[in-house]
Design a protein around this nucleic acid. Structure first.
Length: 275
DNA sequence: AAATTGATCAACCGCTTATAT
DNA sequence: GATATAAGCGGTTGATCAATT
């Protein structure tokens, strides 16, 4: 009855991606696009689950990704958006070109959260910690669909409900019903005011079409065509070393140097294509 | 120098939402 | 409208490296 697993677990490789797998995935997507993620691994000759391929692509291989630590400006945007949206990482990431939800989520948990606490700000409510009384925060309709709230200090102030009810077209939330979850509006000062908040209004707008100027363009724009020529295959690139292909990626002027600065050089881990 | 602890981040899991039939 | 399937999202885990003891 229940859904079938997204992929057949048997024979499906897991764990860190190798450079070879990355290359296959890049090659395939750049030539064919990702019509249907479930089919991608098979067609690309990968022993991976489609979900894993999608994640790898969106979080790591996409040519328009910006690597490296978030800048102060980006960090501030994340904080502002988090105050409005809670843990809607994908929504937040959508407004930071070149950043992924995973990246922002990690950065929030490892850096920003601590920073805010140090500054005496509650990372959940975005209110001063000392002002955090018993009535503070959502303290409300623990509508969390997720499990054990206790272990998660994160409870995105019920705008969870607000956002979830945004129609698929991403426009105008049906403010009436949803906003009523009157969060005590730590950040949105007065619950239900989301429709009037320009920031939230903007956030709920349709994403700009790909290639359109994003609200905050921290990245240098990346020419995907250029990238595709690089990823075209061994005949064009020596894919022999785990580092080579990404180094070449940089040499060809793709992405900004942050790809190398922030990652390959500084982060000398041994994870798969992480060098 | 070795052991322990903490920080970081890629990847996975399970759930929800969207879409197709 | 009901059901099945695919995609997307957010939370969590695990591997690795760095810092500390």
């Amino acid at each position: 009855m229940g859904r079938q697993p997204c992929c057949d677990k048997l024979g499906v490789k897991r764990g860190p991606w190798t450079a070879e797998e990355d290359r296959k995935l890049i090659n395939f997507i750049l030539t064919n696009g990702h019509c249907c993620w479930r089919a991608v691994p098979k067609l690309a000759g990968l022993l991976r689950c489609g979900k894993s391929c999608r994640l790898r692509w969106t979080n790591y291989l996409r040519p328009d990704l910006k690597r490296g630590l978030l800048t102060d400006a980006e960090e501030q945007v994340v904080i502002d958006l988090h105050a409005k949206l809670g843990n809607r990482w994908s929504k937040i990431a959508a407004k930071l070109p070149g950043r992924t939800d995973n990246e922002i989520k990690n950065h929030w948990n490892t850096h920003i959260k601590k920073k805010l606490i140090k500054m005496g700000i509650d990372p959940v409510t975005h209110e001063p910690l000392d002002r955090k009384t018993t009535s503070s925060g959502p303290a409300t309709t623990s509508q969390s669909t997720k499990s054990d709230e206790a272990t998660k200090e994160q409870s995105p102030q019920n705008d969870d409900a607000v956002i979830r009810d945004v129609p698929a077209d991403g426009c105008s939330p049906t403010e009436s019903s949803t906003n009523t979850v009157s969060t005590g509006g730590s950040s949105s000062s007065g619950g239900g005011g989301h429709d009037q908040d320009p920031l939230v209004k903007w956030l709920l707008e349709e994403e700009p079409a790909t290639g359109d100027e994003a609200w905050l363009n921290f990245t240098g724009s990346v020419d995907v065509d250029e990238f595709s020529s690089i990823a075209a295959g061994p005949e064009l690139l020596p894919w022999d070393g785990a580092t080579d292909w990404l180094l070449d990626y940089q040499d060809f002027g793709l992405g900004d140097s942050s790809l190398v600065d922030g990652y390959m050089v500084n982060n000398n881990s041994s994870n798969g294509a992480k060098f």
